[in-house]
Amino acid sequence: MVKYFKDILLGFWTIMVGMKITMDHLFQKKVTMQYPERFDPIDTGFMPDNSRNKLFVDIDDCNGCGGCERDCPVNCITVETVKTVPSDGPITIKSGAKRTLWVLKHEIDYSKCCFCSLCVESCATSAIFHTKEFDYSGYDRNELKHDFVSYSDEEKQKKLDNFVAYQIVKKQEDAAKKAADEAAKAAAAQITK
């Protein structure tokens, strides 16, 4: 019986305590930041370091391995490459390794990206990474595709042509080499006979 009344009083008292807390909060300073007016994460550095926002590809550092394309669970990355040719000279990527592939297209479709960060994990050269930018939009979903390669079409075409030309040259060289090899082999066989 005593417990019954004690419980009632306790219940009543705790409700009063709770109501006092909410009443206090009613007049406290609000923590909401009104978003477009008072929020610029890039300037204030408000976004934490491990936040995963819009992706960026440093194309000078990308060796075109296509790891990100393969690992992306939603297939939103498209990488197109072409091999470098000896006439390009000794080219390297930013981090110093030899460049063997020209990246002709590195496109990310932000409308599909789920910000899982798997592409970042898979990139050996850390060319792809998250920025702090998150508020981007477009009137068309194609506007949300971004190609990080800045070569003009002629440059791309030239690189492709270079490669094709080099292929022909290489084929001829190979054929010549093969013929020379065969000739050498035949000569050797003659000698042993």
Binding site: T22, H25, L26, F27, Q28, K29, K30, V31, T32, Q34
Partner: peptide, 13 residues
């Protein structure tokens, strides 16, 4: 509004 204020939000603005 009261619900927002009690949770330290500003509510619809």
């Amino acid at each position: 509004k009261i619900g927002a204020w009690m949770q330290d939000r500003v509510g619809p603005m």
